[in-house]
Amino acid sequence: MNDDTLLLRQVHPTWIQSGRVTSQVFKPTPKDQQCLSVYNGDQITPADSWRHFTENLGCQSVGVLSVSVAECRQLNLNARPDPGPFPEHAVIDFGQHRGAQLEAKAKQLRALAVQRGWQYQV
């Protein structure tokens, strides 16, 4: 992974309304232990990540958005490989960011991802 590596994030169908995705897509839930699951874009294409997510993991996704490792670093978020669940798995670690800080990071990541556009869409 380097600065240009894209981190691929799946979008649940309930988290898109009239084409707009929620910032929750980029916010770890309390059960995520502050780490947001993504795919390492150096190891898998957006389309293959969608297939893996929906077919191998049996989860729902209407498409794939992305942010880069450099963008995460600029927001003081640490992105790193986490091949435990499967080889292409990575995480964006929100560390000690909670409350308003967490909300702000999620909104900023969403804005960057939306600006980059869909990497894959059903």
Partner: peptide
């Protein structure tokens, strides 16, 4: 825009110019 939250709540969101609101 209205989205459900994992905790059984809702998140309302507005994009108002350069402002992102939840």
């Amino acid at each position: 825009y209205i989205y459900p939250t994992p905790e059984g709540g809702l998140q309302l969101e507005w994009t108002l110019g350069v402002h992102e609101v939840s």
